[in-house]
């Protein structure tokens, strides 16, 4: 019981810290803007060019994932939120104050992860549902639409939101390992953008194997009602991404427990 109440206290404290700095608020605003704003832009473009699309594009058109594309840009904003939630403690030195108040390091990280997961899940689901519903509204009458009452469609929208929340946790774990905002954000962006480019230099048959394991490809799988070619199905993609997050977090926790937190780096 005692432990439960203190994890509660740690989580409440971290929630207060999370919402009282501008970077979190800005990050949330950018995520909303990118997912919904780009969603509106993309779906509007599809609608106005619908009659000019090739028969192949029309045949393979997916109204669900096309309305959620903005989230693949918002993943960078979410990554910055997750990274800064821990690296700002190191760059400002406040990690020392934080750890004197909560010396149990596992509990501290558990508290931070709860705050990050819950807020990013709410944010991710909100923006994805909004982008989907607005997108279908824009398609209405011209482009085929999907209904949220369809189980597969509902799954795609929910997993698109979960994807953002998991990426925030992944970025947080990178931040905990690297303890430096610029370094952690660079690595995060590299994993999402540069690694796929490296994949292009591989022979074609390797490339397909490699590409489907990339986080952004997993994200596309998660938000598509039907698995795209050379990709995992939605649930497999979710599990693989979850494994990435847990693996990185495990490394981060081991390092965090062993390292001195007091001295300047």
């Amino acid at each position: 019981m005692a432990n439960e109440s203190t994890l509660m206290a740690t989580t409440k404290s971290e929630w207060l810290k999370f919402r009282t700095v501008r970077s979190s608020i800005m990050g949330v605003a950018v995520t909303v803007l990118l997912t919904i704003g780009l969603g509106v832009l993309i779906t509007t473009l599809v609608r106005t060019h619908w009659t000019q699309l090739s028969p192949l594009r029309v045949a393979t058109f997916d109204p669900v994932s096309s309305s959620l594309r903005g989230s693949l840009f918002a993943q960078f904003a979410v990554g910055v939120i997750g990274t800064l939630f821990i690296t700002s403690e190191y760059t400002s030195g406040s990690i020392r104050t934080t750890l004197t108040a909560v010396p149990n390091r596992l509990r501290l990280i558990a508290g931070k992860c709860i705050v990050l997961l819950v807020t990013m899940l709410i944010l991710g689901e909100f923006v994805c549902f909004a982008a989907f519903l607005i997108g279908q509204r824009i398609y209405l009458g011209v482009v085929p639409t999907a209904s949220i009452t369809n189980g597969t469609v509902l799954r795609s929208v929910i997993l698109a939101g979960l994807y953002l929340a998991l990426l925030a946790l992944f970025a947080f774990a990178l931040g905990l390992i690297l303890r430096q905002s610029a370094a952690a954000i660079s690595v995060f962006v590299s994993v999402l953008l540069i690694v796929p480019i490296i994949g292009l230099f591989f022979p074609q048959n390797w490339q397909n194997d490699f590409t489907r394991f990339e986080p952004s490809t997993l994200g596309v799988s998660m938000q598509s009602p039907f698995a795209p070619s050379n990709s995992f199905g939605a649930w497999s993609a979710t599990l693989i991404l979850l494994a990435y997050v847990l693996g990185t977090m495990a490394v981060a926790l081991v390092l965090f427990q062993r390292r001195d937190a007091g001295s300047n780096q």
Partner: peptide
Amino acid sequence: KAVHPGRTARNHLRALAVSNQ
């Protein structure tokens, strides 16, 4: 100076207070 520069003094202290009940 080991305090997040973007947070107010009151919020900094409130977060500390909450964590230790």
